[in-house]
Structures are given as C-alpha cells and as structure tokens.
Amino acid sequence: MRPHAEPISISVFNAGGNRVTSWTVREADGIYSRKLNIPDVSEPGVWRIVAHYQGDEKNAATREFQVKKFVMPSFDVSIKPEQNYFLVTTEKFHFTIHASYSYGETIKGAYHCQFGVRQEATGDADTRKPETIIIRGLEKSGSVNNGEAEVTLFRLQIENLLKERSANLTQLALDRTQLYVAVTVIDIASGELQEAEVFIPIVSQRGGVRWRSYSRILTFKKNDASYGAWLDRPSSIWLTAQVVKVLSLVADRQLEGRGEKGRQGANVVSVEEISQSVEYLLSKQSEKDGSFNDPHPVIHREMQGGVGGTEGDVSLTAFVTIALKRSLHHLTGETKNKAF
C-alpha cells in the first residue's frame, strides 16, 4: 500500500473526451471531496473523473457519471385494475388511477379515459403489428383528488356498443383479444398532461388467464430448455432461473388446489418443462467452485438486486440457488440429486 499523504492528481473529462479541469491535492486522512460546477453549455453524455498518484498514471482510478440537461420534475400516471383480466361474465370492471410526482406530491386534477380492444397479432414476427380499435361512446371523465381516481366500467355498456359493430365479448375472448385502457391526467396547478395505458386480457373463464400466461412463457423457450428475451439472441441464465422459479411457484399452487391428480390436468404447468430448464442451469454451473456466470448483458437489472460488476456472479449464484430450491418438489431422480 502506498502512503495516502502523497500528492494526488485529479482530472475531469467531458463527454467528448476533453480535459475540462485538473488539480493536485494532498489529504492527510486519505479522503477528499469537492463540489464540481458544470456549465450550462456543457455537452450531455458520460463524463469521467480520473485520479492517480503523481507519476503513476498507469494505476489511475476512474469513475464515470452521466451529465443530462435538467428537466423540471414530471408526474407519473399508473393504472391499477382490481383484477388483471376482464371476465366476460363480470358485471363491472373496476380500476384505480394513481398520479403523483417522483418526490411524493400527489396530483389534484382531472382524468379522461378511452377504451378499446386489441387482438393478438398473427403472422411473421418481424412484420406483425397488433391493431387497437377504440370503442367510441365508452369514454369516462372525472376528478383526481389526492393523486387517485376510481373508475368503473360496466359490462352491459360494453356489450351494447360492441353489438353495433357486430361483435361480442365471448367471441373476443376466443380471439385472444385484450381490453385497451388509455388514461390522460391533467394537473390543475401546472397544466401538465401525462398519459398511461394498459392491456387487459379478455377471458371466458379464470383458468384461461393462467394457461395463456404459461403458453406465452413457453414461446421464449429454446431447444436446450433455456430462455432468452429473444429467440435469436444468446440464452440468459438469469431469465432461465426466473422462469424455473415462477413455474415452480405456479405448479405448487396448482397442486395445493387440485391435489396430486392436478399433475395430469391440461392447464397445469408441466413438471417436465421445469426439470429440463433445471438441467440446463446445472450444466452451466462451475465445476471449480459451484458458482454461476452469465457473460451476456442482463436486460432487467432489477433481478441483480443492485449487485453487478465484478460481484455479479455472487448475486447470480444466489438467484439460481433460490430457483433450484423452489423447484426441488417437482424434480425426480438424478436431476433432483444434482440440484440439492
């Protein structure tokens, strides 16, 4: 270790790679802090702070930070349905609108809702585009108080408007159609508008939601039982472990509700699917120390639990271990022995 009392050279580089400023300091306690003023005319992008002992540029420490134009804080709008599906026999569909600023202040204003239907796209994956059709006459408006508004949509009203278009909810459910909900909220104080939208599956029975979700997951499965966000991209150990954990949880619930005979039900998650993906995960385990490593970028980084970089293998190993433990009840034979 080198003595911390030696002079330290510090430089700041802008997004273009140009040195903006530099200085030299000595700190007896080894800790240095300073406020850095960035001019308004500065180019946005990734800036760097580089620090090293004088004459030791090869062992410099670098920290990057993002420079962006300041934008006044805006508010977010979200839609929270009472149920994550629209059952064709339900009398009414209820949801809550939430609107608040990132720093916690809630909105007082007004909302306007539009509704429609979107049929699942068919055809080539590169060209298919789902079409959303707005149902005219089904609009809703009202007040937003303390950042919330309650909205209720009645099935009979939807049916009557669909009849004018020679359609009905039962047929829409068979066609795997989704209910489209679009919300616009205005803040009275600032006059600012923000929007949000959600797509709710229309189903003829509650069990259809689980089966459709399960089928959707399997579309991302590859021949080796791994999963990826895209079939033409490398597989993700993170995503495969997540699928194993989710399918195991669903299989647990289905067994609890239907008994051991539930394993043979048509709408039950296949334990074979779980077992195959577990085999894939085990094949990626390090023989040296038992850890897991995924060299490919993680798209949904919240799975990493805030741990990345050189410690990324630690969080991944923990994540896979939890998934394997959850799957044990659905494994048999050698696969179960290896997963222990």
Rank of each mutant, 00 (worst) to 15 (best):
L87R: 00
S100E: 15
I79S: 06
T89M: 05
T90I: 11
H94N: 11
S102N: 12
H98L: 15
T89V: 06
T90Y: 01
F93Y: 14
F95D: 03
T89D: 13
Y101V: 15
V88N: 00
F75I: 04
Q83R: 11
K92A: 14
V77L: 08
Y101M: 11
F95H: 06
E82H: 08
T90S: 14
I97L: 12
I79Q: 04
F75A: 04
Y85N: 01
L87T: 02
I79A: 03
S100T: 14
I97F: 06
L87K: 02
H98S: 12
V88G: 01
F86W: 00
Y103E: 15
Y101T: 04
K80M: 12
S78K: 06
Q83Y: 04
S100I: 11
F95E: 02
I97V: 15
T96Q: 09
S78Y: 01
I97Q: 06
H98Y: 08
E82W: 08
V88A: 03
Y85A: 04
F75P: 00
V77Q: 08
K80T: 08
S102M: 13
H98F: 15
V77F: 01
N84V: 11
K80R: 11
K92H: 11
S102Q: 09
Y103Q: 15
G104Q: 06
F75M: 03
G104F: 09
H98A: 02
P81E: 04
T90A: 15
S78N: 09
D76V: 10
E82L: 10
E82D: 15
G104K: 04
I79F: 06
Y85D: 04
Y103H: 10
A99W: 07
T89C: 03
S100W: 08
T90M: 13
P81I: 08
G104W: 08
Q83D: 07
F95Q: 02
F75K: 04
K92F: 11
Y103K: 14
G104R: 10
K92W: 07
D76Y: 05
T89I: 09
F93P: 03
P81C: 07
L87A: 01
K80F: 03
E82T: 12
F75V: 01
G104V: 12
S102D: 10
V77M: 07
G104C: 11
G104L: 06
T96A: 06
H94G: 05
F95N: 09
N84C: 10
Q83T: 12
Y85W: 05
N84R: 13
I79H: 02
N84F: 10
N84M: 12
T89R: 03
A99F: 05
E82P: 10
K80A: 14
S100K: 10
S78M: 05
E82R: 06
T90K: 05
Y85G: 01
F95M: 14
Y85E: 01
K92R: 12
I79D: 10
T89S: 11
F75L: 09
K80C: 05
Y103A: 13
S100N: 13
V88I: 04
F93H: 03
F95G: 08
E91T: 10
E91S: 11
E82S: 10
E91Q: 08
L87E: 09
Y103N: 14
T90F: 01
Y85S: 07
I97T: 09
G104D: 11
Y103M: 15
F95S: 02
T90N: 08
Y101K: 04
T89P: 01
F86N: 00
D76K: 07
D76C: 04
H94T: 15
